[in-house]
Simulated scan of single mutants.
Amino acid sequence: MLNRTALHLLFLIRCNKLPSFRGCKYQYDAHGHISSKQTTGSTQYYHYDAEHHLIELCIEELDCTHR
């Protein structure tokens, strides 16, 4: 039988994907790669090629966008 801490961790981490951690929210694509990371002041978008290599990272801050 699992103890309370183990159950809490299983609830927080589903399918080896962390939905949130220390104020950041994470979203994943169908292949399990991080597709976005949202913080208080910005959102980062991750783009992958057909071979699952990271090819682009876009950062949208409250007042501007970086590539």
Rank of each mutant, 00 (worst) to 15 (best):
I13R: 06
H33V: 00
T43D: 06
E56D: 08
N3Y: 01
H47M: 07
Q44C: 09
I59F: 01
E61Q: 08
G32H: 00
E60T: 11
Q38K: 13
C58W: 11
E56L: 14
K25R: 02
F21H: 10
Y45Q: 09
L57K: 07
I59E: 14
H8P: 01
R14V: 07
T40R: 07
A30P: 00
Y48W: 13
G32K: 02
Y48I: 08
L9T: 10
L12G: 01
H47T: 12
H52C: 08
I55E: 03
S42G: 10
H53T: 06
S36N: 08
R67Y: 13
S36G: 06
Q38V: 13
E56R: 14
S20W: 02
E61M: 09
Q27S: 05
L57H: 01
C58H: 14
F21P: 03
F11N: 14
H33Y: 08
I34P: 00
T65W: 10
D49C: 01
G32D: 03
P19L: 04
I34R: 10
S36Q: 11
Y46E: 01
D29R: 02
L9Y: 09
F11C: 02
T39R: 06
L2W: 05
E61H: 12
Y26P: 05
D63H: 11
S35W: 03
H53S: 10
G23P: 06
H52W: 10
I34S: 00
L10Q: 14
C24A: 03
T65K: 13
E56Y: 08
H31I: 00
C15E: 15
